[in-house]
Simulated scan of single mutants.
Amino acid sequence: MTLKNKEHQDFPVLTNSAQDGIVNQETFFDRKIANNTNDYYIVKPDDFVYNPRISKLAPYGPIRRNKLEITGVMSPLYYVFSLKSNTNKDYLSYYFISSTWYKFMIENGNTGARSDRFAIKDSIFQRMPIMLPIQNEQTKIGKLFNIIDKDISLQQRKLDLLKQLKKGLLQKMFADKAQVQPSLRFKPFSGNWCQNKMGDFIKEFSQKSQIEDEYPTLSSTNKGMENRNGRVDGKSNIGYKIIENGDLVLSPQNLWLGNININKIGVGIVSPSYKTFKFKNGINPDFIKPQLRTKRMLFNYENASTQGASVVRRNLDLKSFLEIKIYKPFDIKEENDISLIFNLLESLVAYHKSKLQYFTKLKKFLLQQMFI
């Protein structure tokens, strides 16, 4: 039985997010949304809440459990219910994260007058059948998903910490116009760094493929280099540019958004629309790589381009790009030591990202297989 806030008690207002579950509304939206909470439903710890708002993550609206360990209130647009004593709360939490109950919603409700909400009568929603194994099996299934969720949270925290560490080291281990010596250095290095131009380090080249599918087709994106695993839109790739490991690749129209990469995938071909460069002797590409997408460099890229016909595209002025200033140490050993640090960070990020993807996929698979 659900209770309404008839006595105007000062409970925090909660909301049901498909991605984050039950959260404090003011924290979630960074501001207070609801002022008059009279007749709002009272939501106790471990109560379940159905939100009829649909989304890509919750095509029939999310059903989530209040894990906040506090009592709050929710809009009367939601449906609040609690468990009977013989049902494991963790089991039911993950049951509703699965898609097992979608069939009932499809057969008994509809999208209603508003396209962003699913319409189902409370009396019908209450009749939803839920298949429950014996209590011991419910407990084991709930524990299994709790372990997987803890692993997902752990990998996400590690990723976030590594990204914060990289951001901090980028600010401290490189010199620039405002600070010609980095504030964090390896011993025994000292002294100012020297100013160079991007053109001092790279030289444009263009070697075209002559044979269809001779090399894998690669693509440069704002997130990194990607293997297309085939032709782009089925088109011929004769005349594409051949690149090798360590080559610099950028999109002339999207450089200002950070579409610039150093190829680490291996020999491949890229669209003729890309600009391709080789590094000259005397510079370690791995020293340049961490700096390519810093805020300072993005600002420089924007200044090295002009507005195109489309508001989302700018056209690279190659001469201005080659004039961008880069600072480097006089001692190649300091340059290599810095490169090793950022290579290690990149490897750790890739490792924990792959583990996060593994546990996320495992959870998705088990959600599909362990409920009926």
Score class of each variant (00 low, 15 high):
residue 89 K to R: 09
residue 89 K to C: 04
residue 90 D to W: 02
residue 90 D to F: 03
residue 91 Y to V: 01
residue 92 L to Q: 09
residue 92 L to P: 05
residue 92 L to H: 07
residue 95 Y to E: 03
residue 95 Y to N: 01
residue 97 I to G: 00
residue 97 I to D: 01
residue 97 I to T: 02
residue 98 S to T: 01
residue 99 S to A: 07
residue 101 W to F: 06
residue 101 W to N: 12
residue 102 Y to P: 00
residue 107 E to N: 07
residue 107 E to S: 08
residue 108 N to S: 04
residue 109 G to Y: 07
residue 110 N to V: 06
residue 113 A to C: 11
residue 113 A to I: 08
residue 115 S to K: 11
residue 116 D to M: 07
residue 117 R to A: 07
residue 118 F to H: 03
residue 120 I to Y: 02
residue 121 K to G: 11
residue 123 S to A: 10
residue 123 S to T: 09
residue 123 S to L: 03
residue 128 M to V: 09
residue 129 P to K: 00
residue 130 I to G: 14
residue 133 P to N: 13
residue 134 I to D: 15
residue 135 Q to K: 13
residue 135 Q to N: 13
residue 141 I to P: 00
residue 141 I to L: 13
residue 142 G to Q: 04
residue 144 L to V: 02
residue 144 L to K: 05
residue 144 L to G: 01
residue 145 F to E: 03
residue 145 F to W: 01
residue 146 N to W: 03
residue 146 N to P: 00
residue 149 D to E: 15
residue 149 D to F: 02
residue 151 D to K: 05
residue 152 I to G: 02
residue 153 S to V: 05
residue 153 S to N: 12
residue 153 S to T: 09
residue 156 Q to D: 05
residue 156 Q to N: 05
residue 157 R to P: 00
residue 160 D to Y: 13
residue 161 L to M: 13
residue 162 L to I: 11
residue 165 L to P: 00
residue 169 L to F: 15
residue 169 L to R: 13
residue 171 Q to N: 13
residue 173 M to L: 11
residue 173 M to Q: 09
residue 173 M to P: 04
residue 174 F to A: 03
residue 176 D to W: 09
residue 177 K to L: 10
residue 177 K to T: 12
residue 178 A to Q: 11
residue 180 V to C: 05
residue 180 V to P: 10
residue 183 S to M: 14
